[in-house]
């Protein structure tokens, strides 16, 4: 069993590695969704799907052997509503939770401002919890359905394995195949677009998303269609 200090140290080492890799790759979750919708540019979307595939196999394999620490998290309507608001917010801010921290580390004051107001939003909405006690908090999630609290109990790979007796990895591989199907469709669409434009497909065909003309560092960045967006950048 790892100590609290050990947990914090492991988290810091992991976070620092993420910071370096995201800074060098300029990956952003906002761009993964926004650029796919606005510009049919899938550079960040493909990376997200690859990570989801690796993690699905990894997590469900570990769960199959009784390892790992899956979140004990009840399914609730609050997750849909909360992430709906989050989705609007991240497009407006031009940054997700990851890129806000990474851009702040790069000296982007707009990203720091977004983080500051994320904290303000978090705190202000925490005051509302005083009046309604909704949604149910982590420790009050019982794992069972609670219609009054719009919670539907806990259901994930671990409960599937427990209820069916089939190892979680089996379900994980099905989900991975579905994610790969989506990835393959994107590749197919990209190839079709390149063929229509008479260009040779390359491994990194889509342009880098720089976000703001002011933030564009290279000529490639400057040509990026998403550079027209006057936000934080990705």
């Amino acid at each position: 069993m790892i100590t609290v200090d050990g947990q914090c140290l492991a988290a810091f080492v992991f976070g620092s590695t993420v910071g370096v890799l995201v800074q060098r790759s300029r990956w952003c979750n906002t761009a993964a969704l926004r650029d796919a919708m606005l510009f049919k540019s899938y550079r960040n979307t493909k990376a997200l799907l690859v990570a989801m595939m690796i993690l699905t196999v990894g997590f469900t394999a570990m769960i199959s052997f009784g390892n790992g620490n899956p979140m004990r998290f009840d399914v609730g309507i609050n997750q849909f509503i909360g992430l709906f608001l989050f989705g609007i917010g991240m497009v407006f801010a031009g940054a997700c939770t990851v890129s806000s921290w990474v851009k702040t580390g790069e000296g982007n004051i707009g990203a720091l401002w977004a983080l500051l107001f994320l904290i303000v939003g978090l705190f202000l909405s925490s005051l509302m919890w005083s009046f309604s006690y909704w949604p149910l908090a982590g420790q009050t999630m019982t794992g069972h359905s609670n219609a009054a609290g719009l919670q539907f109990g806990w259901a994930d790979a671990l409960t599937l394995q427990r209820d069916t007796g089939i190892p979680a990895i089996f379900f994980g591989l099905i989900q991975t195949a579905a994610l790969y199907g989506l990835y393959w469709r994107i590749l197919k669409r990209e190839r079709a677009t390149l063929a229509a434009e008479g260009k040779v497909p390359s491994s990194v065909a889509a342009p880098m998303a720089a976000g703001s003309p002011a933030l564009a560092k290279t000529a490639t960045d400057a040509r990026d269609p998403s550079a027209a967006l006057p936000t934080l950048g990705d």
Binding site: N29, G82, L85, G89, M90, C96, V98, A114, L122, P135
Partner: peptide, 21 residues
């Protein structure tokens, strides 16, 4: 836009107990 976006992200995280990651 950044201010509104930040506020919405904060409210969203608080409501859902999860973020995009």
């Amino acid at each position: 836009m950044i201010t509104i976006g930040g506020l919405l992200m904060g409210i969203g995280i608080r409501l859902s107990f999860v973020c995009n990651v």
